[in-house]
Design a protein around this nucleic acid. Structure first.
Lengths: 108, 108
DNA sequence: TGGATATTTTACTATATAAGCAAATACGCA
DNA sequence: TGCGTATTTGCTTATATAGTAAAATATCCA
């Protein structure tokens, strides 16, 4: 409500980045790219989704600033742009571990 | 496609956590909680959204394992459950900085 | 018990997102 | 130039999500 305009935009941007990773297929694509750059055709095969879908998901990741693309010949190669995200993913895994552990505690 | 079932579930869970933070209002709520626990009524005022909306957003954060709630008297207090997320948010900010910088480079 | 406050749930509507297919574009090569 | 491959875009449909208002639940206090 009473928030500076810039700060609100900043939060919206941050949310957009997080949302970009908040989809199973995009997260899989992103994690696949941890192993190095990949062309769309390889990614589509690995992830097992249709070409158009993969292309669209990659464009969401790109618009969020998470990956870069590089067209070489007929192929477009994507690669991760900001390595610090890796730590982040580890943290998310900790969140899940944590949750699983306390769910187990409830059952016990 | 050819992915172990458990791994797929794990990715889906991770995506769910990321998605939970991938909404401006929820991210604001979360960042507000960085300052310590808050009751729903305070959060609703700070964030400037309706009570029901805030309540639902908090429940999304809770189901993702990001926050915990604690009912004391008439009020429900929420607090962050996994501190490592803070680093994470810093990283997201780096993503945006990075993007802004290269957008500027394009313009120049 | 009954009234007041805090919170959640429900129901409804509007909007956003995802998947799939077909068409369009871009590039390389004969 | 014209064909084949890689990728993106547009369109359609199904599903998911967000916001609002009203009702339901829970707790406190007189």
């Amino acid at each position: 409500m009473h928030m500076p305009r810039d700060e609100r935009l900043f939060i919206e941007e941050k949310a957009r980045v997080l949302k970009a990773l908040g989809h199973p297929t995009r997260l899989r694509l992103f994690e696949e790219l941890r192993n190095g750059e990949r062309c769309v055709c390889d990614l589509a095969t690995t992830v097992g989704a249709g070409f158009p879908a993969v292309s669209k998901h990659l464009s969401v990741l790109k618009q969020a600033g998470l990956v870069d693309d590089d067209k070489r010949g007929q192929q477009v190669f994507y690669k991760i742009r900001v390595p610090c995200i890796f730590q982040f993913i580890n943290c998310i895994e900790a969140v899940i571990e944590n949750r699983v552990r306390s769910d187990a505690a409830l059952v016990a």
